[in-house]
Design a protein around this nucleic acid. Structure first.
Lengths: 136, 136
DNA sequence: TATTGTTATACTCTATAACTATA
DNA sequence: TATAGTTATAGAGTATAACAATA
């Protein structure tokens, strides 16, 4: 079949992202976490007492969509909320959350290493700068 | 906020893809097409009498999900089906579909050119090979 | 007046299972 | 027996609008 998409950067970008996102999702499923949840936990771990709004702004997740996401993490005993003032609340990993994050981080690190390893050496250093130019 | 994601290729890939996919979707909305629909029409245009199964296999779209997609394109008068045998049907663009595709192609070509232009020159030639190594 | 968190809702995309009819 | 098309359905992801309470 004639494939006019083979030289399309937009198409390559979508397919590569979807393949890698799918692979990561598969591996995080072993920890009973979705990709977004793991990303949110990672940010909370690095920034104790961060607010839901701040995380949403960083990851481009709407405030409204943070609610069920954080609720799942809280119900799973992985994060806890502490009132900062009357309207904000600080987020932090629980002990269980910290333990899980250590394991998750290993999975994510291995995934990232494998991703980079798939890229031929001569293109490797160009990947992140090229990608970041597209959105940062 | 501390951002442990800034050097993560997986994260950069997801964000870049989402930003670019969103931009393309915005522009295709002017043609009343979704990104997948435009992609499917492009393939049909280049491969008259191709089957739904073949397109699905190429784009990794499940057979079941091709049904409503093709129905929308057919209802919009953009594609038509011709029985090949008792169980297969060939897909082709209608006259209206061909006309629309010419305009869509211009939009997509401009989009792809702008995408590439965003990438600093020294990284540009590396983007597609690096991405393709991740999924092809 | 702007911000934080929330509720409710809807639409898209994707995945699975099962069915019919034909090759 | 495998394939093409279809139906129905469910789960994620994402978007918008509106609200209460607080800064």
């Amino acid at each position: 079949m004639r494939d006019p998409l083979s030289s399309s950067p937009g198409y390559s970008l979508r397919r590569a992202s979807s393949a890698m996102t799918g692979l990561l999702a598969e591996r995080l499923a072993a920890h009973e976490l979705r990709t977004v949840e793991a990303t949110v936990m990672l940010l909370i771990g690095e920034n104790p007492q961060v607010t839901a709004s701040k995380i949403g702004a960083t990851l481009d997740i709407q405030r409204a969509n943070m609610v069920p996401l954080l609720k799942r993490l809280e119900d799973a005993g992985l994060i806890e909320r502490t009132p900062i003032d009357g309207k904000s609340q600080g987020l932090a990993l629980t002990a269980a959350g910290t333990t899980k994050m250590a394991a998750v981080r290993k999975t994510v690190d291995r995934f990232e290493a494998e991703l980079i390893a798939r890229v031929p050496e001569e293109h490797r250093a160009h990947l992140i700068p090229a990608l970041d130019a597209l959105w940062r």
